[in-house]
Write a protein that binds this DNA or RNA. Structure first.
Lengths: 140, 140
DNA sequence: TTGCGTGCAAAGGTTTTGCATGGCA
DNA sequence: TGCCATGCAAAACCTTTGCACGCAA
């Protein structure tokens, strides 16, 4: 079993995600934010560190639609409390957090009736947020 | 408003998606299938044709997690009949079609209570299918 | 000292773009 | 004929890998 080193860069990446909690950051967001503070770190290291944090369950990765950057978020202990989904507006790109008893039942139902175990962290609902729906209606 | 040409290649791409309906194909799948039949077509054209078909609502595009190929599917009139979601197994990559009264209510609820209009065509549930769950359990 | 971590450069894989040519209407 | 469509090559894009060096324990 490989040893885990506690390096300057790993602390930087994690503290960056924590300070932005509960919003999401891309690998590049993290790189730029750290470099703004004159911290020296490479993009490769950011990616590799994120990978490790994800595999240790400390960080959650959201895979975005094709070609788009993945988002990472600090896995607060809150996450363990309840099902927690995300809505992504395909117009403005805003990511909306979303907790609801309706969905607590959903994964239960899909597991028992459809034999599929949903990963609520990875699942993202695509659609249009209220703002963008309004703007669109006004434009007509 | 630009005119639309009815070219050999566009017919090929669409007929290819139709013949595989209701399963999904990547741009490369389409290219290879057509070239197997000795049809001459380029990958660029496949992508550009798919884009046009998607923007006309004739084809539905599924964006896969980062770096993975996007999938395209012919938009049959069936699609208009009911809510229709997809389950994507993150282990084996299998895409499972999924219709359920439970979900018919879901988008209604999210719209009225959370003011977000879900696009069921774009939304994909990530998780693990029964096969992969079984295999994993057996491996232990 | 050991061996994981780092970072640059380069590769990887999918999708897009530039540009000259082809072909529909 | 006019203008969109095509296709090759090259670019763009995010992410991963190779490799030599750095650094934590």
């Amino acid at each position: 079993m490989p040893r885990i080193y506690n390096t300057r860069q790993q602390k930087l990446v994690l503290s960056c995600l924590k300070s932005d909690y509960p919003s999401h950051m891309t690998a590049e967001d993290i790189l730029l934010k750290l470099r703004e503070k004159d911290e020296k770190i490479g993009l490769t290291t950011v990616y590799r560190t994120l990978d490790k944090l994800v595999s240790r369950g400390i960080v959650i990765k959201f895979s975005m639609p094709n070609g788009t950057k993945a988002c990472y978020k600090f896995a607060d202990s809150d996450c363990a409390l309840g099902e927690h989904y995300h809505l992504l507006c395909t117009d403005c790109g805003r990511m909306i957090h979303f907790e609801c008893t309706h969905l607590d039942n959903l994964s239960q139902h899909i597991l028992s009736e459809h034999l599929f175990s949903i990963d609520s962290f990875k699942t993202v609902f695509y659609g249009k947020c209220s703002n963008c729906t309004l703007n669109e209606d006004n434009a007509k």
